[in-house]
Design a protein around this nucleic acid. Structure first.
Length: 271
DNA sequence: CTGGTCACCTGGAAGC
DNA sequence: TGCTTCCAGGTGACCA
């Protein structure tokens, strides 16, 4: 997916277009996403007005008053604001139509989701139990320290645990740990208050800078205005195995943790 | 509870 | 050129 910065960039890109507008039609070409797109989606949304477009973790939350449309972009999803007469491609699975324009959901790998949560049902189960937003005050050193005590999981894997903090994906987990000077293999519970505090700051800084940069330019991501053009962010370590560390010049190494690639500099990052 | 593994799906790149 | 294999931004479900 788009990691959190891409989701936030998408939100900022589409919100001005869809907020306040009324859905005139819904087109579902492929309902088989990670979870099925609700069959009654058109009946629920046609005639309803988008109040706000918010984000919780990597979910986009379209508030319609009587309920929320949750959109998760999975690994390869994107949302674009298109002219209705633009011919949909093979992986353009869902359109929310607003007059002569549409919000078009594309997702080649179909790991994403489009879900409906009625107002009376409260918080969606997938959102319940999520940890704090990384850029909120609730994600602080005291919290991370508390929820890593006794945890033997490598800190990189722990950072990607949504119960501890949401929105830290595979790229930014490696990047944050590089900035913090922490070896990704360190058991989370072995980090003391000072290093935990440093890590919290580095996570926030890494994500904030990426959002500022407009998200990273990745193969499947297309800007919400239709231009495929966020500039590629310069990563410290991600995807740079064998290349020189930008800080010390030493070789960046790659290892696999929990079936995901981790990149780090063994000289700059310590246990 | 924790920690580890698997599954879902397509496409692009690398390898032969 | 063409076929095969590997790998990719996520995360819920399942198991010991």
């Amino acid at each position: 997916m788009p990691e959190l910065p891409e989701v936030e960039t998408t939100r900022r890109g589409i919100a001005p277009w869809v907020e306040g507008r009324v859905v005139s039609a819904v087109q579902v070409r492929q309902p088989r996403l990670r979870q099925p797109v609700p069959a009654e989606l058109a009946g629920l949304l046609v005639g309803a007005r988008v109040r706000t477009v918010q984000r919780r973790a990597k979910y986009l939350v379209f508030d319609f008053g009587q309920g929320q449309l949750l959109v998760h972009l999975g690994m390869s999803g994107s949302l674009r604001w298109v002219a209705l007469n633009e011919v949909p491609g093979a992986h353009d699975h869902v359109d929310l139509v607003f007059g002569d324009r549409a919000l078009r959901y594309r997702d080649p790998r179909r790991f994403g989701m489009v879900l409906w949560q009625p107002l009376e049902a409260g918080e969606h189960p997938l959102l319940a139990g999520l940890g704090p937003e990384p850029l909120s005050d609730a994600f602080n050193a005291a919290w991370l320290l508390a929820c890593t005590r006794g945890v033997r999981t490598p800190v990189k894997v722990a950072l990607m645990d949504a119960r501890k903090v949401v929105g830290v994906g595979n790229i930014y987990a490696s990047e944050s740990l590089f900035r913090a000077g922490i070896d990704p293999r360190t058991p989370a519970g072995a980090l003391g208050p000072r290093r935990i505090a440093r890590l919290v700051g580095c996570v926030r800084q890494t994500l904030a800078e990426a959002i500022e940069a407009g998200g990273s330019s990745l193969r499947d991501f297309v800007g919400s205005d239709g231009k495929p053009g966020y500039f590629q962010q310069q990563y410290f370590v991600y995807g740079r195995e064998g290349e020189g560390c930008r800080r010390c010049g030493g070789g960046v190494r790659k290892l696999v943790q929990a079936q995901r690639s981790t990149y780090f500099c063994p000289r700059c990052q310590r246990r």
